[in-house]
Design a protein around this nucleic acid. Sequence first.
DNA 1: CATGAAAGAAGCCGTAC
DNA 2: GTACGGCTTCTTTCATG
Lengths: 157, 157
Amino acid sequence: MRLDQFDLALLEAVQQDATISQQDLGARVNLSSAAVNRRLKKMNMHGVIRKTVALVDPAHLGYALTVITEVEVESERLDLLDAMKRSFLACPQVQQCYYVAGACDFVLVMLVRNMEEYTQLTRELFFESNNVKGFKTLVSMSNVKVGTAVPVGSEGH
Amino acid sequence: MRLDQFDLALLEAVQQDATISQQDLGARVNLSSAAVNRRLKKMNMHGVIRKTVALVDPAHLGYALTVITEVEVESERLDLLDAMKRSFLACPQVQQCYYVAGACDFVLVMLVRNMEEYTQLTRELFFESNNVKGFKTLVSMSNVKVGTAVPVGSEGH
DNA sequence: CATGAAAGAAGCCGTAC
DNA sequence: GTACGGCTTCTTTCATG
């Protein structure tokens, strides 16, 4: 799908705040509310906009700790990797999981209430998998930036 | 702010899809649309819901690569660290940045169009800071999970 | 104090131009 | 692309347990 300057301007706006009314969006990008409606609907259908969600502050739900875990696997056998991926996907505390090339194999970003909860999770996710050679834990002291906005237009030099 | 079962059920729903109408939400949790409206407004004001945003598919904007970078700093002097944090915050390709305890000091999750863009960013962010001892690059081969939903209720173990 | 019902305001979205 | 109009959704008020 081809995106013009109007689409990009709309994407930039709704990535910051999806509650802005379509006529306010129109005023911002110089378009009628009907045109805004059509463009947003199109981008939703084409998957440019994956979904619209509320972002919840983890602290208000007791999730005080962000932990990053680098996991090294024993075997790269596809069925074993898939089983691991599935267990990471199913775990609600796992916010993100990347399968990476490099020194380790998986990088996980997790949200936990306390260290006990993390310890418990490492048992479930790593020890019980029987395919984890080792893992390294990095505890976040400061979540400097936790963003969701994809760069739009010419921001990225 | 104290959250009851209704609030938690609403949070769980709007974290998945914030476009559901308030009366549909009400039907789901057994509450009138007016009550849903009041509760959502309250949680917005108290910061339990930080914001509501559209999630954009990076691939549709040409951002094909996810790169994780572990940065080791030269000096832990506060003013130098702050300057680094600011530069990470200001960089739109940096999706997340954590200041961590452990083997390295910063973990960055970045979204780039290609390796050239990443190389260019490492120059701007790391070499020009004059406070980076070294960094390790992990390229994601598969974004297994990139979620935003904070666990709610008894999902956690 | 939070709820549900109902009325008024605001926003969405199809049709026409 | 814009302008209009019906229809849905939101939001406030008010009486109630």
